[in-house]
């Protein structure tokens, strides 16, 4: 019972992180206009979250399914691709690798400690994502970029009708930068961005 609660809690933390990181990336990389975002307080940080209904529902739809897959241990990676509308080139590829750890016994106290540690790690990671605009190439021409989210699942995972197979949308010969990682009781998330040089 305790382990299932832990898994649920851990999955919730990971899904929440995905939500805020996707929102932050879309804001920081100006895929959507800044007036579409409002500031919220999360992880002791001022983060930006969209209040555009269409985008919100799209992200919610993705994360609901990803949550289910994570609970079943079927999702190994979540990728956010920023795509040039005119050329269909992938200009940035944000990868979130998910490692499923084994169940570990823990007490309430250790859980609190771990939660605090996880929050700290996520905070650092969000700061890194925010700061990444300094080294990432500038995305010119407003409203010329869109995005797509890919979920890497096991072959035997149940897939709803709304989902379809896709290619990996890799960036050939792209630069790669790895960010900090964070861990929960059941998951370890590693983040990295690869981007196309000389856009």
């Amino acid at each position: 019972m305790a382990s299932s609660l832990s898994l649920k809690g851990s999955t919730r933390i990971v899904t929440e992180f995905f939500e805020y990181s996707i929102n932050s990336i879309l804001y920081q990389r100006a895929v959507y206009p800044p007036e579409d975002f409002v500031t919220v307080r999360k992880y002791d940080l001022n983060l930006l979250k969209t209040h555009d209904d269409e985008l919100k529902s799209y992200i919610r739809q993705i994360l609901l399914q990803v949550h289910r897959w994570l609970l079943g241990g079927k999702c190994n990676k979540l990728v956010l691709c920023i795509v040039d509308k005119s050329t269909c080139d992938i200009v940035e590829r944000w990868e979130f690798d998910v490692q499923h750890n084994g169940q570990e016994s823990y007490t309430e106290q250790t859980k609190e400690v771990e939660n605090a540690e996880t929050q700290k790690q996520i905070r650092a990671l969000m700061r890194q994502i925010t700061a990444s605009v300094t080294f990432l190439p500038e995305l010119e021409e407003n409203d010329n970029y869109t995005f797509n989210v890919l979920a890497y699942t096991d072959a035997n995972a149940k897939v709803p009708l709304e989902w379809a197979d896709s290619d990996s949308m890799d960036i050939p010969d792209g630069e790669r930068v790895e960010f900090r990682s964070f861990s929960t009781n059941n998951h370890k998330i590693r983040t990295q961005v690869s981007y196309k040089m000389n856009i």
Partner: peptide, 21 residues
């Protein structure tokens, strides 16, 4: 068959990129 294709890459059918395309 599963061994041949262990991973699947999924995307929502109704995603912004596909809509644009």
């Amino acid at each position: 068959q599963l061994d041949q294709k262990k991973l699947r890459i999924m995307q929502l059918r109704d995603n912004p990129f596909s809509k644009d395309q």
